[in-house]
């Protein structure tokens, strides 16, 4: 090859083909997607909790995209039905994830609907799942001599509770737990909503 213009224009054409196939076409195809009727937008607390999920990097170990029963037994693990594009209508940025170092969380709010469980698990995962390799997030909690008015005290199994005082959840932890509880996509969806 001796002509740099041919080189650069060829390179730009292949990139344009690539962008059309993977960005532009999906953009137009998915533009008209509407949220399923039963899907609620995040409340301000939940939205902030979602931001916390991003800050802590939960997405590097947890997916939010159960696979279809024809491909994998994700539904049998309680992770839920295969999602449709509309399920992600309010998700900005998307948090689909590509790792399952931990389980899928698309329906964690339905599987573990108790905020006490969520907070305790965020404080010390091994208090609830013995061999878990998830890190605890103690910096989202405070050790206090005693709880003050309005404090959210974390209930822990005795082996994991502090010797003196109580563990109180900071607002960040509470919002993160609220976001997790909002992850409930168990409502039914019409067949036609699947992306083809």
């Amino acid at each position: 090859m001796e002509n740099e213009f041919k080189l650069i224009s060829g390179a730009l054409v292949t990139l344009a083909v690539s962008a059309s196939a993977l960005v532009v076409l999906p953009y137009f195809q998915l533009q008209s997607v509407r949220p399923p009727e039963k899907l609620k937008d995040y409340s301000p607390d939940e939205a902030q909790g979602r931001q916390q999920y991003i800050s802590e990097g939960c997405v590097y170990c947890h997916s939010q995209q159960p696979r279809d029963a024809s491909q994998a037994p994700d539904a049998k693990r309680g992770w839920g039905r295969a999602p449709v594009p509309g399920d992600y209508y309010y998700d900005k940025p998307h948090l689909l994830g590509t790792m399952r170092t931990g389980p899928d969380l698309f329906n964690i709010g339905a599987r573990q609907p108790s905020i006490d469980w969520q907070l305790g698990h965020l404080y010390q995962p091994r208090a609830y799942t013995p061999n878990s390799i998830m890190p605890g997030f103690p910096y989202l909690f405070e050790l206090k001599a005693q709880a003050a008015e309005g404090d959210k005290v974390v209930t822990l199994p005795p082996a994991f509770a502090p010797a003196k005082g109580v563990i109180v959840a900071k607002p960040e932890a509470i919002r993160l737990a609220k976001y997790l509880l909002s992850l409930d996509h168990t409502y039914p969806i019409p067949d036609a909503a699947q992306a083809k």
Partner: peptide, 17 residues
């Protein structure tokens, strides 16, 4: 340029892609 979809196999994205 067109292989990116293989990171989303089984995901809720258009099948053809």
């Amino acid at each position: 340029g067109q292989v990116g979809g293989h990171h989303l196999i089984g995901g809720p994205v258009p099948e053809w892609m």
